Amino acid sequence: MSDTPTLPAELLRSLRRDAAGLVAAIVQQHDTGEVLMLGWMDDEALRRTLHEGRVTFWSRSRQEYWRKGDTSGHVQHLRSASLDCDGDALLLQVEQVGAACHTGEHSCFHRPVGEFA
C-alpha cells in the first residue's frame, strides 16, 4: 500500500480539465485579496499543493512540475483552495513571500491594458 496521499474522489470528479489535463489556478494573497498570478495544475500538482502546503504548478513550456520558490526563494504558502462553480478553475489563497512574478514584480498583473492603447 502506498503512503502517498491521494485527492478526494469527489474533487477529482468535480475538476473539469482542459485537453492537456490541466486546470487554471488563480493565486491570490490571502489577507489583501490581491491577485498575484495564474498558473496551471494537473491532478498531481494539486495533490502536492494540498498535501505539502506549498504551491506546485505544471510548467506547460518545460513540461515539468515546479514548486513556487524553490529557485527564487519567493515561496507561496497555501492558506486555502477553492474550486469555481464550473470546476474549471481553482482559487488558491496564499501567503506570498517575496515577488510572485518572475520579473521581480510583486504581482504578475502589473501592466495596465491602457499602456498598450
Rank of each mutant, 00 (worst) to 15 (best):
M1L: 09
S2N: 14
S2R: 14
T4K: 15
T4Q: 15
P5S: 02
L7I: 05
L7T: 02
L7G: 01
L7M: 01
L7W: 00
P8G: 07
P8I: 01
R13M: 05
R13L: 06
S14C: 03
L15M: 06
R16D: 15
R16A: 15
D18K: 10
G21K: 12
V23I: 15
V23F: 00
A24D: 12
I26D: 02
Q28P: 05
H30M: 01
H30R: 07
D31K: 12
D31A: 11
T32G: 03
G33L: 07
E34P: 00
E34Q: 12
V35C: 03
L36K: 03
L36V: 10
L36R: 06
M37F: 07
L38Q: 13
L38F: 07
L38G: 11
G39P: 07
W40Y: 14
M41D: 03
M41Q: 11
D42G: 06
D43L: 04
D43K: 02
D43M: 02
E44N: 14
E44C: 13
A45P: 04
A45C: 03
R47H: 09
R48A: 02
T49Y: 00
L50C: 01
H51T: 15
E52V: 08
G53F: 06
R54A: 11
R54Y: 10
V55Y: 00
T56L: 05
W58C: 10
S59I: 06
S59W: 07
Q63S: 14
Q63E: 15
Y65H: 14
W66R: 11
G69P: 12
T71H: 09
S72T: 12
S72C: 05
S72M: 04
G73A: 08
H74W: 06
V75L: 15
H77M: 07
H77A: 12
L78P: 10
R79M: 10
S80M: 03
S82C: 02
L83G: 09
C85L: 01
D86M: 05
D86Q: 09
A89N: 04
A89K: 02
L92N: 04
V94E: 01
V97D: 10
G98S: 02
A99R: 02
A99H: 06
C101Y: 01
H102I: 11
H102R: 11
E105W: 01
H106Q: 15
H106K: 13
S107R: 07
S107F: 11
F109V: 08
F109W: 13
R111F: 06
R111G: 05
E115Q: 14
F116Y: 13
F116N: 04
F116V: 10
A117G: 12
